[in-house]
Design a protein around this nucleic acid. Sequence first.
DNA 1: CAAACTATCTATAAGCT
DNA 2: TAGCTTATAGATAGTTT
Lengths: 145, 145
Amino acid sequence: MGRGKIEIKRIENQNSRQVTYTKRRNGLVKKAKEISVLCDAKVSLIIFSSSGKLEHYLSPQTTMVEILDQYHKNSGDMLWDAKLESLNNEIDRMKKENDNMNVELKHLNGVDITSLNHRELMALEDALDDGLVNIRCKKVSLINL
Amino acid sequence: MGRGKIEIKRIENQNSRQVTYTKRRNGLVKKAKEISVLCDAKVSLIIFSSSGKLEHYLSPQTTMVEILDQYHKNSGDMLWDAKLESLNNEIDRMKKENDNMNVELKHLNGVDITSLNHRELMALEDALDDGLVNIRCKKVSLINL
DNA sequence: CAAACTATCTATAAGCT
DNA sequence: TAGCTTATAGATAGTTT
């Protein structure tokens, strides 16, 4: 709609894409408002530009939670389950990371080192030595201030 | 757009409202597709007619969960129920714990200790010394086996 | 009644400032 | 670069079949 017809495919020119985005985003939100008023429809419209900026419209007569509830019921999509699963995965991942660091910390403090072999003990000793050297350097430089 | 201009207010005639709904809903979805393709935007559009029928469109390059995640981050709205909230809290808590351990590990290795004061350095030195003593005991006992 | 039609209104592509 | 302009494409209100 305009001075020329355009093909519906990604606009390569970054600037035109941005300009077109702004215009069409405004148009889309306007239309969403109109159908919501004219036809007494509940509309949720969420748009992220390619640069990640958010724009959204929600019919006044509803809430996001209600829309999602209805959407969930109607579509059969497992939105919440998927979300739960991804959160649980993240927690598991962090727990592992956490545990590993905990073990490392204990070892550095000389705790729970029964299971370590000679080679591992040597590595630990070196690490502690290095740490001590660094700390003592720092202490000396502080004292000399 | 049509044979006459119309005011943007609820269409009282049930039948015209339904007809207009169908036409405009199709138009809206088409526009959503177009901006998604033309401008590389992520769009989620959910529409419920006044009779409760669902229509929705989602950009191919994304998922509902991703859209909601981003929406949640950007809007600050509380979309999620208590369970999700508590999971998010747990993740935050673990992140902090993680960060703290990370800092501690670095300090024990003598890294990033610039900000520490004398007292803290002393404590660190003692910890390292203790660690070393433990390690060396262990080493000796291993050798004597 | 829904699907097609078409006159008219609206959105917007390209240009301009 | 962000607004304004304008010619034209597109959407659609009312009509017809």
